[in-house]
């Protein structure tokens, strides 16, 4: 039997927390996908060694404080407007990496105008779109991505398309724009899914370096508090109910990467 101190050595280390993930305790609820997605973003920037060239735009919503957790320069946008900020920052600093990190209320509801025009202009930025089918921060109201029949604070009887429309498939929509070079839908519910999602984020940043156009990564996510489930139940519910409407996989990949 080895002594534990013989095992804990730098040469034996196979995985560790990215140095870009700050030690601040996250405010996210247990089971929330944001923490994992933050980790993926931090690891990507770390591994590509581009910390000095990255500017992130945080949204209004649960990820409003993303700037507290990842050690890069950040701007905090008004609700839905992150793509407009990113446009100007990228145009004025074309050699920097610019990404927005937005939820489904931010991107798919109040910010539809901005995201559509950023994609149509093919702005050379990366969009991380966290879709948990609900407004988390304000307490579980209906989002454009809320599933039919899903109960929320503003659809207590379940969402009906007759009064509230259908779950909006933003990623399929923006994939139509010639300026979008990469549109993919991922999840982080298993280690394998997480590794795949991270590969997408790396590809998106590499594509930005090559000035290829807009890259858009939707990550289907859980909101166990908003859904009123345990984290395990939320993951199962997501796979059973969200994946049929928002199926994971690449929708468009013209990066050549």
């Amino acid at each position: 039997m080895n002594n534990i101190s013989d095992i804990i050595k730098p040469e034996n280390k196979v995985y560790g927390k990215s140095k870009l993930l700050l030690d601040k305790e996250m405010h996210y609820c247990p089971g929330c996908s944001h923490g994992t997605i933050h980790k993926i973003v931090a690891e990507t920037i770390d591994e590509l060694n581009i910390q000095e060239q990255v500017i992130g735009i945080s949204p209004v919503g649960c990820a409003v404080l993303a700037y507290d957790y990842i050690d890069i320069d950040w701007q905090e946008a008004a609700h839905g407007r992150a793509p407009a900020l990113a446009t100007a920052i990228k145009r004025l600093h074309p050699d920097k990496y610019v990404f927005t990190y937005q939820g489904d209320g931010d991107l798919a509801s109040i910010g539809t105008g901005e995201i559509i025009h950023v994609c149509n202009r093919g702005e050379n930025i990366t969009v991380i779109f966290v879709n948990n089918a609900i407004y988390g921060m304000t307490g579980g109201q209906m989002a454009p991505t809320t599933l039919e029949g899903m109960k929320t604070a503003t659809t207590p009887g379940g969402r009906s398309h007759l009064t509230s429309g259908f779950p909006m498939k933003i990623t399929e929509m923006i994939a139509l724009f010639p300026g979008v070079v990469y549109a993919t839908r991922q999840s982080v519910d298993t280690p394998a899914a997480e590794r795949k999602a991270k590969k997408s984020v790396i590809k998106a940043f590499k594509s930005q370096k090559l000035k290829k156009g807009t890259s858009f990564i939707e990550i289907v996510s859980t909101c166990s508090s908003g859904w009123k489930m345990t984290p395990v139940e939320a993951n199962n519910w997501m796979r059973e109910n969200m994946f049929p409407v928002f199926p994971p996989g690449d929708i468009k990949d013209e990066t050549g990467l």
């Binding site: 008004a78 407009a84 900020l85 446009t87 100007a88 920052i89 105008g113």
Partner: peptide, 22 residues
């Protein structure tokens, strides 16, 4: 100098916010 026609005044002022911030 960059000159860009925004899709709305809302976008224009938020582009200004981004540009000023950087």
């Amino acid at each position: 100098m960059i000159v860009l026609q925004a899709e709305s005044e809302v976008a224009a002022i938020n582009m200004l916010y981004g540009g000023a911030g950087c």
